Computed example of a mutant assay.
Amino acid sequence: MILHKADDALMCKVFVMTLRGAAQDWFHTLPSGSISSFKELAYAFAKERTSYRTIKKNPDHLFNLRKKSDESLQDYIKRFKAEKANIVGCDDWIASSAFKKGLPAEHDLYRELTIAPSQTLAEVFTTAERYALWDDDRIAAKKSTKQEEQPDPVPSNRASHKGKGIAIPL
Rank of each mutant, 00 (worst) to 15 (best):
I2G: 04
H4L: 06
K5H: 09
D7P: 05
D7I: 04
D7M: 06
D8S: 14
C12P: 04
M17S: 13
T18A: 07
T18I: 06
G21P: 00
A22V: 11
Q24F: 12
Q24Y: 12
W26K: 03
W26F: 12
P31T: 09
G33D: 07
G33N: 12
S37D: 04
Y43T: 13
I55D: 03
N58S: 14
P59N: 01
D60A: 15
D60Q: 15
D60P: 00
L62M: 11
N64R: 15
R66T: 13
S69K: 15
D70F: 15
Q74I: 02
Y76M: 08
I77L: 07
K78Q: 09
F80V: 04
A82K: 14
K84R: 15
I87H: 02
G89L: 05
C90L: 03
D91N: 14
W93Y: 08
S97Y: 04
S97D: 06
A98N: 07
F99R: 11
K101H: 14
G102P: 09
L103N: 05
A105V: 15
H107S: 05
H107G: 02
L109E: 01
E112F: 13
L113M: 02
I115P: 00
P117A: 13
S118Y: 11
S118K: 11
A122R: 08
A122P: 00
V124D: 00
T127G: 00
R130M: 04
R130G: 01
R130Y: 03
A132T: 03
D136I: 01
I139C: 00
K142D: 05
K143Q: 07
K146G: 00
E149N: 12
Q150L: 12
S156Q: 05
A159W: 12
S160R: 15
G163Q: 08
K164P: 01
G165F: 13
A167H: 13
